[in-house]
């Protein structure tokens, strides 16, 4: 067990290193360099000495490999660089934005699991019943309608029908003003949660139907177990592995989805930071935020893998 965890951690680190190389190389395709990106045309007004000093400061003109190693080295010591547009440290920008995105991701996941598991389980107990059809309807919306359409629609509907637009007020931290914070997080989380829920619902329903078809549930009912115990302990537990896989995949997609939804609901999270930095060509921020998202994605995948060994004893032997 310990050895397999160690092996996974190691392979995760290798992947993360590779990802950092890819991100680094992609952003080096940018025309110009850190100095021109920051100063624009006015870089031409610099004296030669100023230019040399700045080039030296940003490492312009050094080989890619040297630039990469120095970037990686400072990343590892927690120095994410300085934002070109706001002149503050990237670490402080990220530190302020990360909790918002985490809260959004967790809230969306909770909503998605609730929608997905409840509709999936109860729908599969009576296929083609009322609950099942309602679930399939929700799934079609969640899968077919992009989150930015749902989000824009939701904002418009709330604002025009109820004059309710919690996002118009400054964002409130969870511990600063919990009530306002929950109102501000709920609708974006619902927007993302619908898509997540749709995918989880389809997986849950299919996995449940498969377990039902093996017939042991009927035996369990026959020997006098309550419907509740059979449904959740026998059927759902048996259907859990694909549901966990799908949840892991969805949590990964969710990280990408926050980019768009934060933009619609004006949440000051990592996604909004990323989009603003892209418009400002502020690539120290773009670089760090992309890497953080990728790291999150990789960690989620690894945790999903490790969950299998907890859920499914058959995977434990190896």
């Amino acid at each position: 067990m310990l050895a397999s965890v160690a092996r996974r951690l190691l392979s995760m680190l290798v992947t993360l290193l590779g990802v950092s190389v890819i991100i680094f190389l992609v952003l080096r395709l940018l025309p110009g360099n850190a100095v021109t990106a920051q100063m624009g045309v006015s870089a031409g007004l610099l004296s030669h000495a100023q230019r040399v000093a700045l080039d030296h400061y940003y490492g312009v003109g050094e080989p890619f490999f040297r630039q990469y190693v120095s970037w990686l080295g400072s990343m590892l010591t927690g120095n994410l660089g300085v934002s070109l547009s706001s002149r503050t440290s990237v670490a402080s920008l990220v530190g302020a934005a990360l909790p918002v995105t985490l809260e959004l991701a967790i809230a969306s996941m909770v909503i998605g699991e609730l929608i997905g598991v409840l509709f999936g389980v109860f729908g599969s107990l009576r296929p083609r019943g009322v609950v099942d059809n309602a679930g399939q309807g929700v799934a079609l919306v969640g899968l077919g309608v992009p989150s930015f359409v749902i989000g824009t629609g939701l904002v418009t509907f709330l604002a025009s029908s109820f004059h309710y637009f919690p996002s118009s007020r400054a964002f409130a931290g969870l511990f600063f003003n919990p009530w306002l914070n929950l109102q501000q997080i709920f609708f974006p989380a619902l927007t993302l949660g619908l898509g997540v829920g749709a995918a989880i619902m389809r997986t849950t329903r299919a996995a449940m139907l498969e377990v039902v078809s093996t017939g042991f549930a009927r035996t369990a009912r026959g020997k006098g177990l309550s419907k509740f115990v059979v449904t959740w302990k026998h059927l759902f537990l048996g259907a859990l592995v694909p549901v966990v896989t799908m949840s892991g995949i969805q949590l990964g997609y969710l990280l990408g989805g926050t980019v768009v939804v934060e933009q619609i609901f004006v949440l000051p999270g990592l996604g909004r930071l990323l989009v603003n930095s892209i418009s400002n060509r502020d690539f120290p921020v773009v670089q760090s935020v992309t890497l953080i998202f990728a790291a999150g994605f990789i960690v989620v995948n690894m945790l999903t893998d490790m969950l299998y060994t907890l859920i499914d004893p058959r995977t434990r032997a190896r």
């Binding site: 992947t15 991100i23 952003l27 998202f293 994605f297």
Partner: peptide
């Protein structure tokens, strides 16, 4: 695996930033 580890939409964002 490494490409897969970057959420596709973020990879697209990074490439659009560059190109």
């Amino acid at each position: 695996d490494m490409l897969f580890a970057i959420p596709a939409i973020l990879l697209a964002l990074a490439i659009v930033t560059a190109l």
